[in-house]
């Protein structure tokens, strides 16, 4: 049976992992390779690197980072953040990434999804969607790190990215992101039933039951989380054991089977 994926997301700036990561047994907390190795051992099913490097000149640091990580850690790697051309995608995939996540650039230029999918295959292209609830009902697509509304309906845009050739959707609720109160289950369920490509839930994980709910009720195929893992509230293995006990198929890494 296909297992549900648990995906830690690492924010990367200038080639280093940033933001509140608190590990006792890591020599260098900001070293992406160390962190990736750590999460691999814990049973992470994939890794997402979100590049928040501000300046264009320093953006190639992400390519080096992927190159180094992919030489040491053998699980799928997705890279997102500011990727806006097929050439960017190629460089990052060549360095060893398996998937590219595109967000604002896809809204501005939907053809980018199609060109990426034609060139590298749909499975390489993840459409990241930032969703915000409308007072009038439904959700609106936001871009530019959540700063800019687009008037687009999330449901329509999700259907559209699938049509354009995306192989997966990374769906972040801006309303629940950072709250640790749980994912937006209604949004997830709505999108999961709209599309026939996998949906990754993001935004709001605080406790293992939130991940359970995203999968069991939101019908998510995978769940992404950051601070819950980085701050050691729960380990990936603990979360997976909780899910397994509550009838969600997950992969328990060999190191953790005892």
């Amino acid at each position: 049976m296909l297992t549900k994926r648990i995906i830690p997301c690492l924010d990367v700036k200038d080639g280093r992992v940033v933001k509140g990561i608190n590990f006792e047994n890591l020599k260098d907390e900001g070293d992406p390779v160390d962190l990736a190795r750590y999460y691999d051992r814990e049973g992470a099913d994939e890794l997402v690197f979100l590049d928040i490097t501000a300046t264009h000149e320093k953006r190639k640091t992400i390519v080096d980072l992927v190159e180094k990580t992919a030489s040491q850690v053998f699980i799928p790697i997705t890279v997102g953040g500011g990727i806006s051309t097929v050439e960017d995608m190629k460089l990052i995939l060549r360095a060893g990434a398996d998937k590219i996540s595109i967000n604002s650039a896809a809204v501005r230029n939907p053809e980018l999804i199609t060109r990426g999918a034609e060139k590298f295959g749909s499975q390489c292209i993840v459409a990241a969607i930032d969703a915000k609830r409308r007072d009038s009902g439904g959700w609106e697509v936001f871009i530019s790190g959540g700063r800019k509304g687009t008037q687009k309906s999330v449901i329509d845009w999700a259907a559209r990215v699938q049509e354009l050739g995306a192989g997966e959707i990374l769906l972040t609720s801006m309303d629940t992101d950072g709250t640790r109160d749980g994912y937006d289950i209604e949004l997830l369920a709505k999108i999961s039933e709209t599309v026939s490509i996998p949906v990754i839930a993001s935004g709001g994980a605080g406790r293992p039951e939130h991940l359970w709910k995203a999968i069991a009720e939101g019908k998510a195929d995978a769940v992404l989380a950051a601070s819950i893992f980085h701050e050691r509230d729960y380990s990936i293995n603990e979360v997976k054991k909780y899910l397994a006990e509550h009838d969600i198929p997950v992969r328990i890494a060999e190191d953790n089977q005892k």
Binding site: L2, T3, S196
Partner: peptide, 15 residues
């Protein structure tokens, strides 16, 4: 076929 599976591609860890 979507009559046999819910999502395509088959993506993730399986036995």
């Amino acid at each position: 076929s979507l009559s046999e599976v819910t999502k395509i591609p088959h993506m993730g860890w399986n036995q």
